[in-house]
Design a protein around this nucleic acid. Structure first.
Lengths: 358, 358
DNA sequence: TCGTAGTCTTAAAGCGCTTTAAACACATTG
DNA sequence: CAATGTGTTTAAAGCGCTTTAAGACTACGA
C-alpha cells in the first residue's frame, strides 16, 4: 500500500547537506575529491533522509550497469548450486546478477534477449544448448561465457570441468577396488555425453580393461537410469545364485553377452539414482554385488539415504572462474577468449566397495 | 567482443524515418496518435537499424518499471515450478519478472532489497519466512503478495492452497481404500506444518478415526522421512511375519504401542521419498503392506520409478492468482488486501492401494 | 470568409543520476 | 606581487527515453 511520500532524491540530500549534487554523488560512491567535512555532512544527510540511490537513473548516467546476466535451468539442482556461487563471486567484485530462467515456454534465446534488455554487460550461460554458430554470433556483440560445456565458438569464453578426466577418476577408483567389468551408462545425445563417454573409453584402455568396456544406453534422468538397470539385471538372471561369468578374452567380444557388470559409472547423479532404485528393488545389493558411481555430486547424492559416490565438478571453482572471466573482459580489457578447464574431484561414498570375489 | 558500433538510439530511428522522436516513441509502444504512414515509416526504420529500446532509459522516463520481483529458494523444485507459471502469467499482462534467489549467503531480506533496487512495482514472495511483522512493514511501502503461506500481516495479499483440505483429501482417499491406521509424518516447525497437521487431525476425527490418529516426528527432507520410516518399522518387528495388531479401543491410547500403520501421509514429497526409500530397503512392500501419500506433487513424484500418490497445490493456479493480485493493485487500483485460498487436488498414483486384510 | 473542431506532429521539459570542465580558495614560490 | 600550483567544489551538460502542451494542417459548417 505505497502511500506516496516520494522517495528522496540526490538533490534532497544535497540541499540538506548544503552542498551540490555532484559532491553528494562523489561521497556516496566513495570517490576521492570531497573533503572530510563534506563527506560527513553528506553521509549524515543521507542517513537522515533514508536515501537510497535510484539504480535506474544511476545506470543511465554512467555508461555501466555492473550487471552480469545468467541463464539457467531452474529445475537443475546443479545450476542452482552454480548460481549460489556465482552470486557470491559477483558480489565480491561489485557486480550484481540478473537471473533469466529457462522454462517450457521460454527458451534460451528469449532468456538471453531478456538479459540484454536489462543491459547486462556480460552473459554467463549455464550449460547452453545454443548451437556454436549462434554463440559465436552473440559473442560478436557481447561478452559471453559458456559454463559447463565445451564450445567451439569464436570469441566465447569457456569455463568447464574436464569431464573425461572426471569419468577417468571414477573408473580408476573402481579398478583400484578390484573391478574389471565396469560399464558406462550413457547420457542424452550431446557434447557433454560425448566427452564423458570418451573419458570412459580412454580410461578403460589405459587400465588395460578395454576388453571389458561396455557402454549401455541411458539418458539424463531417473527414468533412463532405471531402464539401464533393467537391461543390466536382465544379463544376470536373478535371483538364481548363478555366478557372474568371467569376461572371455578378445576385444569387446563381450558385447551382448549375458553378464552383469560388477561396477557401473552413470552419466549423472539422476541416472545413477534411477539405477540404484531399480537395482535395489530387484534385490541387488549395492555395493555388495555392484558398485555405482554418479556424476555431479548433487545434493541428492549427499543424502544419507542415497550416499552416492560421485564426481564433483566443483561448482564454486567454476563459478569463480566464470565471474573472473567476465570481469577480466569488462575491467581489465582482455579481448582474447579463454578456455578454463577445471579438474573434477571424485567424492567417494557408500555405493562403491571392493569387488567381492576376485 | 563488443566492438562498438554504438547501438542505435531512438533519435537515430527518428532521423532515418524523418519524424520526431516523440512519434517514434509512440509508434514503438503501440500508442494511438501517429498515422498509418508514420507508423510504417518508423517500423521500417527501426527494423533496418535493428533498434531495441533501452529499458533503463525508458524506465527512468516513465514512472513505471512494469517489473514484478520474485524471491525464491533456488533449491526448491516447487518454487521452480511456480516460477515458470509466474513468468507466463506476468508475460500475459505485460509485466517482466526479476528473480532474486535465496542462497546460503543471501537471506530473504537481502533478496528483497535487491528487488527494490530494481524498482520492482510489486514483490511476490514464495513461501516467505519473514515474520509477519516484517511483512507488514514491507507492505506499508510496497505491494507484496505472499505465496504459499498463510500470513497474518496487514496489507499483504496472500495466495495459498488450503493445505488442511489437501491433507484431508489424502486421508479420505486412504480411508476410502479401507485404511484405518493412518499416520501423519510431521514437517519442520512452522506455519505450514501446523496447518497440515491440523488438516490431518480434523480429517481423522471427521472419519471417526480419531482413535487411531498418530503424528510422528518428521521434517521437510529425505533424511527426516527416512528417520520417520525407521521409527515406524521399529513398531512392527520385521521380517517376522507377525500380523499387524488391530488398534485397541480407546482414544489415542495407541501412542507408543508397537504397531506399523497401514498408511502414511507425509508432510511433503521429499519426506515421502526418504520414507519410501527406507521402507523398501527394509523389505516393506509399498503399497502392499503400507500406502504412502506425499504432498506437492513435485516432478519427482511423477517419475515412473517413484510414482507417488501426492497432493498438488496446483502451482499454475497459484501463479496466475498471484500475478493477478499484483496487477489488480498496480493497474486497477485495488487497495484492500485479499487472501486467495485455492483447493488442492489429490493425484492418485502407485503408492496407495486397498488395505490388504480388512 | 472565418471559426472551430479534429487529426497528426513535434519541441522541449523532464526522469534522477554521473561527470566534465571550470571556478574558487588558498598556499607557495620567484 | 604576480605567477603557479594544490585541493575542493560546483554548474551544467548529458544518459536515452516519455510525455505534455502547443503547433500545423485539414475539413467542415455557418
Amino acid at each position: 500500500m505505497p502511500s506516496r511520500p516520494p522517495r528522496p532524491r540526490l538533490e534532497d540530500v544535497a540541499a540538506r547537506a548544503q552542498v551540490s549534487t555532484a559532491s553528494v554523488s562523489l561521497v556516496l560512491r566513495g570517490r576521492p575529491g570531497p573533503s572530510a567535512a563534506t563527506r560527513e555532512a553528506v553521509l549524515e544527510a543521507a542517513r537522515d533522509l533514508g536515501y537510497r540511490a535510484d539504480r535506474t537513473a544511476s545506470l543511465l548516467a554512467r555508461r555501466r550497469t555492473q550487471l552480469l546476466g545468467v541463464t539457467m535451468d531452474v529445475r537443475s539442482t546443479f545450476h542452482a548450486e552454480l548460481l549460489e556461487d556465482l552470486q557470491a563471486a559477483a558480489d565480491e567484485r561489485g557486480y550484481d546478477i540478473v537471473v533469466s530462467p529457462l522454462t517450457r515456454t521460454r527458451d534460451e534465446r528469449r532468456a538471453v534477449e531478456s538479459l540484454l534488455d536489462f543491459r547486462c554487460e556480460a552473459l554467463l550461460l549455464l550449460g547452453p544448448r545454443l548451437p556454436d554458430a549462434e554463440l559465436a554470433a552473440l559473442a560478436e556483440e557481447h561478452h559471453v561465457v559458456a559454463i559447463g560445456r565445451r564450445a567451439r565458438a569464436a570469441g566465447v569464453d569457456v569455463v568447464r570441468a574436464a569431464d573425461d578426466v572426471g569419468v577417468g577418476l571414477a573408473v580408476e577408483h573402481l579398478a583400484g577396488l578390484g573391478h574389471r567389468d565396469i560399464t558406462f551408462v550413457d547420457g542424452p545425445r550431446g557434447p557433454i555425453a560425448t566427452v564423458r563417454r570418451q573419458g570412459y573409453r580412454r580410461a578403460m584402455k589405459r587400465l588395460g580393461l578395454a576388453d571389458s568396456s561396455l557402454v549401455v544406453d541411458g539418458g539424463g534422468d531417473e527414468e533412463s537410469g532405471a531402464r539401464a538397470a533393467t537391461a543390466l539385471v536382465a544379463r544376470a538372471p536373478r535371483p538364481s545364485t548363478g555366478r557372474v561369468l568371467p569376461p572371455p578374452p578378445g576385444r569387446e567380444a563381450t558385447r551382448g553377452r549375458p553378464r552383469m557388470p560388477s561396477a557401473v559409472v552413470a552419466f549423472n547423479d539422476r541416472a545413477a539414482l534411477g539405477l540404484l532404485d531399480r537395482l535395489r528393488r530387484d534385490g541387488v545389493d549395492v555395493p555388495g554385488e555392484i558398485s555405482v558411481v554418479g556424476y555431479d555430486d548433487s545434493p541428492i547424492a549427499r543424502l544419507a539415504t542415497v550416499d552416492l559416490t560421485s564426481v564433483s565438478q566443483i561448482p564454486e571453482a567454476m563459478a569463480t572462474a566464470a565471474v573472473e572471466a567476465a570481469t577480466q573482459r569488462l575491467d581489465d580489457g582482455r579481448t582474447e577468449p579463454v578456455e578454463l578447464v577445471l579438474e573434477p574431484q571424485l567424492v567417494v561414498r557408500g555405493t562403491t566397495a571392493r569387488r567381492e570375489s576376485p
